[in-house]
Nucleic acid binder design. Sequence first.
RNA 1: GUCCCCAUCGUCUAGCCAGGUCUAGGACACCGGGUUUUCAUCCCGGCAACAGGGGUUCGAAUCCCCUUGGGGACGCCA
Length: 587
Amino acid sequence: MCLSVGSRFPGVQTSSPRPVSAVNRISKGPHMSVRVRFAPSPTGYLHVGGIRTAIFNYFFARKLGGVFVLRIDDTDIKRHHDEAVQVILDGLKWMGLEWDEGPEKGGAYGPYFQGQRFERYKAVAKQLEDAGRAYWAKKEAPKELPAWKIEKLKKAGKWDEDRAEAAADPNPALYFKFHPGEPKEVVFRDAVWGEYRRPAEMLDDYVILRGDGTPTYNFATVVDDIDMQISHVIRGEDHLANTPKQINLFEALGAPLPVFAHLPMIHNDKAQKISKRRDPVAVTLYRDAGILPEALFNFLALLGWSPGDDRELMSKDEMTAAFDLERIKHAPAQFALARKRDLAEDAGEAERVGWLHESLPGTKLEWMNGEYLKKLPVDELLERVFPFLVNAGYPLRKGTYAIFTLPHIEGESEADKQVRFDEALAKAEMEPSIFRTDTSGTDSNPLENVIVDGWLKRVLALEQERSRTLLGLAENVRLFFEPPKSYDSKAVAKFLEKNDGWAHLEAARALLGAASDWSPAALEQALNAYAESKGAKFGAVAQPLRVALAGVPVSPPIHDTLALLGKDEALRRIDALRSGRGKAVPA
RNA sequence: GUCCCCAUCGUCUAGCCAGGUCUAGGACACCGGGUUUUCAUCCCGGCAACAGGGGUUCGAAUCCCCUUGGGGACGCCA
């Protein structure tokens, strides 16, 4: 009574189970090369669960020297938008998931949009009809669904108007005849789940072409996977139960079966399947919350898979080398966030980013992001964090703020110009006031327009190891751009009102005002000497200064902070606290 | 409701398929200590799990059964 595909279709086993790896080897028979695909639907956002699926496909293709195909599953024309497709392409690129064939890349098996393949589906459908494996039929009067089912669908967010509309469609649809003769059980071996079987009575005929002539998912997918010669179908576990349906289609079409590998689901911290409405699933949210793509990549790859040893922070290449379908877990993994409050279902993009930003601290993803952030060369960090700095409202404008101009001297030799350039650069590196000067307007001579980001880079380098996300970093550098708006009352009480805090601040002001060398080393030395002469701990001097400069008793090393603020600004801030002594505490 | 799947610290997981080497390992988080001018980093230490119950076995986290819990599928969505 068992389906007899075992012998004809490699990858399918009906008896004598073998190790999965053996099946993988056999599968290379019909498919000379490894070809995998990621087939997202253009819904307007790229889902983190989808990204993980893409990652595993990517690993598999790269490891075996195969081809990674990107296909857009847009059979539901009503929802197709070019913009929605672009979101997917941008998201994949941002993640570093380059595809070999598909949109923008082309390939020998296109088109890679299902929406452009309708003629092909119709032709295959006709072929099936001619072979007696499909028939046109009108849906019977939509029978009332059981109440439990409606409720469940609504609860899962899967109850929509489409359903009602479809039921009302008067046109006949083309049904695939599931059982050509006797009902048969379908058995196959999934590369991660092992043997999977579906009894015959569970497998009924199903629609492959809708009343409007468009293909359904289960049909279009199979036709495409055959046409594109996909050797391994690696996708979410929610497709596992549909696989037997598809297997029968492969058989009816006389095509060799790909190896199937189903990935465990990703759940939220409430053990629910992560959903667009109540969870932050769009990849753009992570980008905007300051998560680095390489960190998200690493984190997602470890959801449901591990290399088997204790490695966690791994490069893409290391993970690719270690990847193995057999090492994928079966149980769903939680994508846990430290949610302080629920995410409103109607929350907008900005609100979701804010929510994510405050739900990230304490999570492994945030920690991992911090690790990647720390390793970033400062030049690259500057590039990445720049949009966040602009967003934070700091007085920065790329192309103006960071450029200083060397006055043009007629007839000057290149050597002289170079000397002048070096001098100006050295000065600009040290002085934020010059750094911030707007000198827009001359970009004819590259030598005369120099990007001076030395100051900014030094600021970023200081806060780099104190931050875990780009967004957090952008917040942490605020004290270098704006004087404190208020002073932390506890800090004032603890560091100024006690232990001669005010006296030390006065002394430090005098000392700094007279300082001729404003380098970090000199400042540190001077402050140290003062503290020693008073027999005070360094902190007794440093903390009052911190409060003056930052408003809070937290900052990078005090001498670095002073140096980067510049003498004028530093003294201004110290004087502001001194003059407001009586009302230093914010209202 | 029917069918199928899953189950190790709060979380991600190693171990399971080929029982003993597991008083169950690593990481995040948390707590404590050390280094440090604060914060961060770094170092050291701690807390913390085999869902429950049967069975097989000299021996079970590992194999079998049941229960419980969770998930998925059952659509002219993908």
